[in-house]
Each structure stands twice: as C-alpha cells, then as structure tokens.
C-alpha cells in the first residue's frame, strides 16, 4: 500500500517539485502551504506521515506538531527544514517528531525515513486496535 504523505512548506516551488519526486517513488502525496492548512487537511483526511517545515509564517512547525500530536497521536512527523538549531531539534524530538532533516535533503534518505515512519504508524494503529478489542472484551465479559 502506498504511503500517504502530507508535505507542508511555505515555499510553493519546493512543494511542487518535492511532491512530484515523491510521487515518482510510488507515494501518495498531498501538499499544504501553511501549518493551518495542514491541520485542516489532517482533520478531514487520513495520512501516514507528515513532512513538515520548521519555520513558517503565522504558525511554525513546532506549534503545528503540538496540535498534530493532540488530534492524531499515531501520525508520524518528519521535520524537513532549512536550518535547525540544536535547541529546536531537541524540542522537536521531545514533542514527538520521528526525525529531522536539513534542506537540501538526499531524497533516498528521506524516502527511507518516510517508509520507516509508515511502518511505525501501522504498528501504532495495530496496537491501538488491539487495545480497543481488549477493552471491549473486558467490558462485555465475553
């Protein structure tokens, strides 16, 4: 099954070209030009991995990550940013980002990280489903 990716960046040219390259690699890619647009898409669509820029206007990547973790905790987030300080990097990982890459990025490495993130998300979803089944079994006393 193709990985469903949401690519978030305020550089339109970057979004266009990166999404085309990821599509060539068999991924199902949607794009958002701002953190707010990304949150709105995540509320209505299902994605496996969000590739998120750190520095964006209005709402930055870290703020967006906090919201994403609240609404879709199983969603995997990879930061892809122009430059990151050690402090911001640590904060991103503490907030639950799966990985962090600097631009310009090696597409093969990014592709590998996306595939691993997809697997991780599937495991998390399976565990959530198992926990729900166990809860039902316990409550219904079957």
């Amino acid at each position: 099954m193709a990985e469903r990716i949401l690519l978030v960046d305020d550089e339109k040219d970057f979004l266009d070209i990166m999404s085309e390259r990821l599509k060539y690699r068999g991924m199902d890619v949607a794009t958002a030009g701002s953190a707010r647009e990304a949150i709105s898409k995540i509320m209505s669509e299902s994605y496996d991995v969000v590739v998120l820029d750190l520095q964006m206007q209005e709402m930055d990547g870290l703020e967006a990550l906090k919201v994403l973790r609240m609404v879709k905790p199983e969603l995997q987030v990879i930061f892809l940013t122009g430059h990151v300080t050690l402090e911001k990097g640590v904060e991103a990982m503490k907030l639950g980002a799966m990985d962090l890459m600097e631009k310009p990025a090696d597409i093969a490495i990014l592709e590998d990280k996306i595939r691993k993130a997809h697997v991780r998300k599937m495991i998390l979803v399976e565990k959530q489903a198992e926990a729900r089944v166990n809860e039902i079994m316990l409550n219904k006393g079957w």
Binding site: R21, G82, E102, K103, P104, A105
Partner: peptide, 28 residues
C-alpha cells in the same frame, strides 16, 4: 545573517530538487 542564510538554503533546496527531478527523468 541567520535569516538570509535560511532563505538561501531554501533556494538551494529548490535547485537541488530540480537537479534530482532531472536525474529521475533521465532514469525514466
């Protein structure tokens, strides 16, 4: 300096992806 270098990296990233896309197209 930090702000301009960040923006420069954004421009380089776009150039990098264009080079990558050309490579993808050549492979295809």
């Amino acid at each position: 300096s930090a702000s301009l270098s960040h923006e420069l990296k954004n421009a380089l990233a776009i150039i990098n992806e264009h080079a990558g896309l050309l490579e993808d197209m050549m492979l295809m």
